[in-house]
Design a protein around this nucleic acid. Structure first.
Lengths: 338, 338
DNA sequence: CTGAAAGCGCTTACAG
DNA sequence: CTGAAAGCGCTTACAG
């Protein structure tokens, strides 16, 4: 009794366990009739190959690790949903490891987890994907990994990204199309690779439209609400722009708060756009126009790269990468200038 | 070369693999000197027992499953953090399975996952923990499981809960202590077990203070923002109460919106309290007074029950359960009546 | 197209 | 306190 094993299936199907193994792994070289027989017996016994035995005998564990250091709950669950779907479709499972990027023993934790579980691969979200110590360990152990939207040294390893520059340019074009010609821009944190890309995208679209990008319209921020608030105060004095595009939602909300403080009505007196489509973007009033990253799809792509073996070391030439499209979410915070 | 195995450690330490096994599993009957020697060799080899081999040879997989059907991203990540911490401390790992409670093949998915992974146990969050089909499969397969805050048939299996009735009573006492004597109450969804407990807690505290609980002050809601808004409109007409206690935050925010619509100032004209401490509770203005569930601690307790074998079938007598304390978060939405 | 043998790295059940 | 043998349920590498 108990749970059926490969031996039970083989006996009842009148074949060897090797044949059962072939069928379960969808290997070629099995007569159709034999395959059907094995499948039917397996089904009737509710047989599922033991992951432990497969992992021990073979080289794969059918387990993919997901390392994250809570950027935001919404982001993390979107990543999990996207990755878990692909894992399930390929008979794998997702093991999660919440980590602390600041912890000195993070490399040790990663090493021990990989050793114990023999992970087929690891998906890294920001900011873990920018921790060189973690990448070192993974490479040293030969564990395939994929980085989601890496900032530092992006060409180092397999990754999935979004075209931040194109997205920022597209959003800027939308503002211009609404009729705005004097647009303020809040730059992101200087250590964050996406900041420069988004800034470039803004400049691209302004130039393309023949609009000037005045230095006093470009304020350096740090991706925080507070820095957005400060940038708002700096931008919204005399002769203010009719629209402000902030490099992320937190800063956009800071600009919105500063505008209120100054007695301005959003969006009548000022249009505001952000980037990221965080949950807060929809719960403020007016709802914030922003750029949505395809988070779930990016995680799914990362899982695919591991499952397909694309992420395996070593890479011949440049490490593989995939770039996914973005979505503009035009909401109430942006209208035609008064 | 490659990864060190138990044989490598045994050879270098000059002992049998059985002794290495004893040391790694913290079993008794090993001389202190021998233990130290083995530990030192294991350390130098960066040896970690293979989870697959342990699982195949023994009965444990060192894997705990977490089934969830996205109640809210914040809830899910809190649960994961709490459970993952205990898993890590005990050398286990957390496998997540996002599921769709409405899917007809959910029982099949659960069965196959348990078979393939030989999970040591499963943690179930609402609403998955109330799906009888899932519980049936788990019991039939002998997989220990713990339910987090179950609603239906709570005595059926091991669980971790919070005292909803006491929490609602305590919150009500706080409102009374502020000086409120005429308090409205919005009842939760009728299908949700916690609704009745929270209602009872409210009534307990009112009676205890010698205050009347008028039927027209108790409005049936459905846990949604909309039902809270409707309840607010029903409660806030002529001769309105000075405070409203809603059975969850979504409804409390609905009441708040209704109060605004009616031209009332919160908290000056009306104090409002909720239940759950959702992220929105802190981001509205004024911040919402509410009851915080110890979500991470509840998940940690559930993991402990699996790790300690407490959740194993069959239970002699009533299934084990743990009840954790709540926290009242008194914020700006509640003040003394005008 | 199919199978017999060996072995993956551990734990279990005994023996001493 | 320690160890030799068997076996967990598969896959790998061959052989036919």
């Amino acid at each position: 009794m108990g749970v059926a094993t490969i031996n039970d299936v083989a006996r009842l199907a009148g074949v060897s366990i090797k044949t059962v193994s072939r069928v379960m792994n969808r290997e070629p070289n099995v007569r159709e009739e034999t395959r059907a027989k094995v499948l039917s017996v397996a089904e009737s016994l509710q047989y599922r190959p033991s992951q432990s035995a497969r992992s021990l005998a073979g080289s794969r564990s059918f387990l993919i690790g997901l390392l994250f250091d809570n950027p935001s709950a919404a982001y993390v669950t979107d990543v999990q949903l996207g990755a878990a779907a692909r894992c399930r479709a390929s008979g794998r499972h997702l093991v999660i490891e919440p980590v602390d990027t600041a912890a000195p023993d993070l490399p040790k934790l990663v090493r021990e987890t990989c050793r114990a579980l023999r992970l087929d691969g690891v998906i890294l979200t920001p900011p873990v994907c920018d921790d060189a110590r973690v990448l070192d360990v993974l490479e040293q152990m030969g564990v395939p990994y994929v980085r989601l939207a890496p900032n530092r040294d992006p060409d180092r390893s397999p990754r999935v990204t979004m075209d931040d520059r194109a997205a920022a340019a597209e959003m800027t074009r939308k503002l211009i199309a609404l009729g705005h010609t004097d647009i303020g821009f809040v730059i992101g944190h200087p250590d964050h690779g996406a900041s420069e890309l988004r800034r470039q995208g803004f400049v691209d679209a302004m130039r393309e439209a023949g609009l000037e990008t005045r230095p006093d319209r470009m304020i350096q921020g740090r991706f925080s609400f507070r820095s957005g608030f400060d940038a708002g105060e700096a931008l919204l004095g005399q002769g203010r722009p009719t629209a402000v595009f902030a490099s992320n939602d937190d800063m956009a909300l800071g600009v919105m708060a500063a505008a209120r403080q100054l007695g301005l009505d959003v969006p009548r007196d000022l249009s505001i756009a952000g980037f990221d489509d965080t949950p807060a973007a929809q719960s403020v009033w007016p709802p914030l126009t922003t750029v949505a990253q395809p988070i779930g799809a990016m995680a799914a792509a990362a899982a695919d790269m591991i499952i397909d073996g694309e992420a395996a070391h070593p890479h011949t030439g440049a490490p593989p990468s995939r770039e996914l499209g973005f979505t503009l979410r035009m909401r109430g915070s942006t209208v035609e200038p008064a």
